[in-house]
Design a protein around this nucleic acid. Sequence first.
DNA 1: CTGAAAGCGCTTACAG
DNA 2: CTGAAAGCGCTTACAG
Lengths: 343, 343
Amino acid sequence: MGRGGTITIKDVAREAAVSVATVSRALNGHENVAEDVRRMVLETAKRLRYQPHAAARSLSSRSTQTIGVVLPDLYGEFFSELIRGIDGVARGQGRHLLVSSYHGAQEGQGAALRAMRGRVDGLLVLSPYADQPGFLTDNLPVGLPVVMINTRLPNDVYPVLNVDNHGGALAMMRHLIGAGHRRIAFIGGPQGNFDAAERERGYRDALAELLPGTRAWIVPGNFDEASGMEAGTALLKAEARPDAVFAANDVMALGCLFAFNEAGLQVPRDIALAGFDDVPLARFVHPTLTTMRISIAELGANAMQRLLHDIQAGGQPWPEPDPLTPELVVRNSAPTREGAVRA
Amino acid sequence: MGRGGTITIKDVAREAAVSVATVSRALNGHENVAEDVRRMVLETAKRLRYQPHAAARSLSSRSTQTIGVVLPDLYGEFFSELIRGIDGVARGQGRHLLVSSYHGAQEGQGAALRAMRGRVDGLLVLSPYADQPGFLTDNLPVGLPVVMINTRLPNDVYPVLNVDNHGGALAMMRHLIGAGHRRIAFIGGPQGNFDAAERERGYRDALAELLPGTRAWIVPGNFDEASGMEAGTALLKAEARPDAVFAANDVMALGCLFAFNEAGLQVPRDIALAGFDDVPLARFVHPTLTTMRISIAELGANAMQRLLHDIQAGGQPWPEPDPLTPELVVRNSAPTREGAVRA
DNA sequence: CTGAAAGCGCTTACAG
DNA sequence: CTGAAAGCGCTTACAG
């Protein structure tokens, strides 16, 4: 036995009276082992409770069977769902997950990326710094397969899995307009936020296409509840208030709903309201919130699948993966009008 | 350079014109390196973008700088919060996190535990199988530091971080009784669930101590919303309904609240209601829910701290860690009575 | 303070 | 089908 009482491949070899090479082959299911020898080795390994040492195996086989996941944070529903999706695929393939968060700071993320050397076979990265020139290439080992998630990339060095925010916003606008709304205001998201910008672009494009001549009506927000409340209050001050409000995310829609309730307005009778994301709360508020559902877990699962494909395929050229399509969820805050066309 | 274009310690040594031993010492901050040599090595390593190979380092140093986290699942708020707490401490100490979920099946967990060999310096485990004889010892390398989380253990082989569910239930009962309630019903949790059993025990002990002679009034539940609804409906059918209901968790309390609303009862005027956990929804429902808050992130952080201590301390004897104390959160569903003593 | 060498526990050509 | 040996990229006594 090795020091510390752990069983090594040598112990198994000695006990089974074969060479370590044979033990290794038997355990790894190689073809070139006599059937009876294999059985005997397997049984010996089991009896000794032998468990291969992962670091040693990684070092010689140059494969770790683990995938690194580098995220800004591990907190909250979004990342939780993302990890769930990633984990589901990983388990199915017998891969381990090395998760790493860097809590915002750019230098922290560089370190997190560099520390992955020798620990993982590939990397899933969600990063706001990804579009900084050289950031990825400076910190990532060359040749390591990487898939980016929900990230704007300056070039196509790595495949990216995004959400089709533009298409989702278009779909919501089609729904609202189909339900008869014409004066539709939009509550925007934080400056520089990619998701928010894409959703706003979808709003504008829908107006241009479906209600030509209508002016865009956009109030600022920053994705939190308070900003949604403020936006809602501001909208009610307009001489002619909107007949529908589309918030760039659910949390702001919830704040907006609160403002409408405070003002004594009835949603959707007096004013319709829609969000984006389908947060868990969306189905619990009154009225329940019409929104675009994004399956974050699916996003994670797709990214993982793509990464595993890339790891196995080696350096094949990669077609850009399809973005994830959000799904319209019609609830009570913005119902489909009787007889109107379903979006 | 090594194959694949990666830089190894040899490359740094050659470039710096010293031995690999010196490079290793300089990089690891050992004392016995001349200051100018160290500077030169560090600079060379930086210039070459050298990053030590984690597996190689682990193999020779017998330390991985990573902590394994084995959970039943990665899904939902509980595990998300737990991981957040764990991650916070891990980052502070420069440790990586290898997370593993086994989705319920016992065999899956055994495999997850065994696969940790050579990957981690210690393990954080949350397991419903932990009290099965031999389960832990059969699957865990001897000598590997382990801390269990929220687990009932047959003996004290490993330290356990638990939540003081019994004390929490006592505190809630003190609050309800202090608010003047006398007919307090309890909605129980799933059979065999440790948390649920402890909370029920707290309920019973509080009755025995504070309202001697009162019979316990317990309706079954299984922690989900539907069972809370059923329990609430059942309670209203009693000839004399309770004046307060204490549900073993918030989700059931929410279901119960729904049942009361349906029946036209006003909470808390007609009947008070309390839960346990402080889920995010608790502050959004009407009326807001009085409950016991458990800081799951703190539970995770404490467990991680303890584990790191054990890793560093070697085989010291471990005092059982203190359980986490839940905190009473008084909201509108069960307010403190005017003039009543605060719990 | 520095280097040559052994060793960590595996895998994998290379011979046979 | 099997074994002896080299090698993966580090760290760390051991000499000097």
